[in-house]
Nucleic acid binder design. Structure first.
Lengths: 256, 256
DNA sequence: AAGTGGTCTAGACCACTCC
DNA sequence: GAGTGGTCTAGACCACTTC
C-alpha cells in the first residue's frame, strides 16, 4: 500500500493511545524494538515518533524511553477576526476619527510608552447589512514615516495595520475577552435602546522584542457576536492525504 | 558549539523570515544548496526544514521547492477551564441538581439523540471567596454502568467528567462564547441586582466518531470572567533549551 | 535531462539511565 | 555494561516539475 512506513507506525501507536491500550505515562516500545517490529530503519521509526510528539501524544526522556503524554484538557484554538465572526461579517465601516493624541495613564501603561509619545487613534464603526454592530478603537504608537492610507484604515484588521512596520511572523498577539454593559456613547453608536450587553475584545500586539506595538478594543453588540474555539488534536491532518489511496488500494492492487 | 546543526539551519531561516529578508511566497534555498552551505547531510537539512514546516513558517511543493508560508493572522490559543480563569478560581461548588431527564427539542438536536434517550443533568453553582460567580449546567447522555461519583460531580471540569468513558485523546471539544443578559433565575443564583451581563461559554464534546457526548453551558458573572488567548508561534520552544548558546553565536556569524 | 522534494537505509558516535 | 534516545552521515530510489 502507498502509506509510508513512518505514518503507519504513527497511526498504529496513535490508535493504541486513542482506544486506551496505552495510557498517559505508559512507555512505548523502544525505538529498536519498533525497528524490528516494522522491519524499518531507526530514522524511519524516529520520524513516526516525531510526528506523535509534535501532535502532543508522546514525549521522550533521553536514556529512558518514549512515553504517552497527558493530554492538555484546557487548550483550544480560537479564530478571531474583528471583521468576521460566527454571526456576522462586516460589510461596511465608518471612520469616526483618525487622530494623533498623547497617551493617558492607561495607554502609557498598556503600550509602555512615555507620556510624550504620539499615539495614533483610529475609531471606527462596523456595519452588517446596514446595522451598526461593533465599535472599534485602535491605538498605535506613531513613528516617523509611518504610512497612513485611508483605505487601509477603513478596512484593515489590526494585524494588517501593523504588517507594514513589522513582519507578521514576529508578532505576538494577545486577546482578552469580556462581557460588559455599554456606556452611553457606545449605546448611541450601536443603536442600543434596551438592555443589551457587549462582547468586548481587547487585542494587543507585540513586536519581536516583546514591545507593545498596538492596542485595539472592539465592542460588539452581544447579539451580533459569538466566538468559536475548538480543540484540535491534529489527528487526521497527517494521514488525510493518503486516505483515498488506502481505500483505492483495497479494491484494485497492482497496476501503475 | 552545542547547537545542533538542524536547529541552526532552522533558526537561521526563521531569522531571515522574521526580519523580512524572506517574504511569504519566496523560495528557500534548495535542500541540496543548504547541504553544501552547512556542510550537512540532506537528512539533517530536512530535519531543520521539517521544524519550520511544523511551526507554520514554510511549506513545500514536491518537484519545486520550499516556500515561505503566509502567516495565519486569525489563529489564537485559548486556555479555558470553567473552574479557573483570569479573574477568579473556583474554590467552592454547590450542587443544585443531579437528575435524569428526557431531552427537549434543543437537546435532541444538540446531542443528536433520540427523544427517549436518558440524559443526565448536572446543575452547579461556582463560588469564589463566598461569592457565587457562575451557573453551570451539563448534559450527558446516560449509558448503563456509567459511574456517577459525588466528588467528581462536584469538582470535575467537563473533560474530566467524560474521561471515564472515552480516552481524552480522542475527544474533540468546541466552545461558543457569547455575552448575554441573565434571566431571572440566573440573576437569583448569582446575586445579580443591577445591570450585569453574563459571559456564557457553551462547551460541546465529541467522541472519536464525531458523536456528541456532552453539552455544558457555563454562565459567568461578567465581572468575574475574562478569557485570555494568545497567538503562539511556537518560536521559542524549539531553541529555548539552547538560548544561551544562540546568543553566543549571534556575535560571530558572517563566516563562510 | 537536470533539479526538486519524499521516503528510506544501515550504519555511526554521543550522553544518558539503570543495574 | 547494556539499553535508551539525540544527532548525523552518505548514500539510494522515487515522483514530480522545468526546460
Amino acid at each position: 500500500m502507498g502509506l509510508p512506513i513512518y505514518l503507519k507506525i504513527a497511526e498504529d501507536i496513535k490508535e493504541k493511545i486513542n482506544n486506551g491500550e496505552l495510557k498517559p505515562g505508559d512507555a512505548i516500545y523502544s525505538e529498536n524494538a519498533l525497528c524490528k517490529a516494522y522491519n524499518a530503519s531507526r530514522m524511519t521509526v524516529r520520524r513516526g515518533l516525531a510526528l506523535l510528539a509534535n501532535e502532543g501524544y508522546i514525549y521522550s526522556i533521553p536514556g529512558k524511553g518514549n512515553f504517552v503524554q497527558e493530554p492538555d484538557y484546557n487548550s483550544y484554538t480560537l479564530y478571531y477576526n474583528e471583521m468576521e465572526n460566527l454571526v456576522n461579517s462586516i460589510d461596511k465601516t465608518k471612520l469616526l476619527e483618525v487622530n494623533i493624541i498623547l497617551p493617558d495613564y492607561k495607554l502609557i501603561n498598556s503600550l509602555q510608552v512615555t507620556r510624550n509619545k504620539k499615539i495614533i487613534v483610529i475609531r471606527r464603526l462596523f456595519f452588517t447589512e446596514g446595522e451598526p454592530v461593533a465599535y472599534d478603537v485602535k491605538y498605535l504608537p506613531y513613528y516617523k514615516g509611518m504610512p497612513i492610507v485611508e483605505k487601509e484604515i477603513r478596512y484593515a484588521t489590526f494585524p494588517q495595520m501593523v504588517a507594514k512596520r513589522t513582519s507578521l511572523f514576529a508578532i505576538k498577539k494577545e486577546l482578552v475577552i469580556s462581557a460588559q454593559m455599554p456606556d452611553e456613547e457606545t449605546k448611541k453608536y450601536l443603536n442600543i435602546y434596551n438592555e443589551l450587553p457587549l462582547m468586548v475584545v481587547e487585542q494587543k500586539l507585540y513586536d519581536r522584542e516583546g514591545k507593545p506595538i498596538g492596542l485595539g478594543i472592539t465592542s460588539f453588540r452581544g447579539d451580533y457576536c459569538k466566538l468559536y474555539a475548538e480543540s484540535f488534536f491534529s489527528d487526521s491532518k497527517t494521514a488525510e492525504k493518503y486516505k483515498n489511496e488506502v481505500s483505492e488500494n483495497a479494491n484494485n492492487l497492482g497496476d501503475k
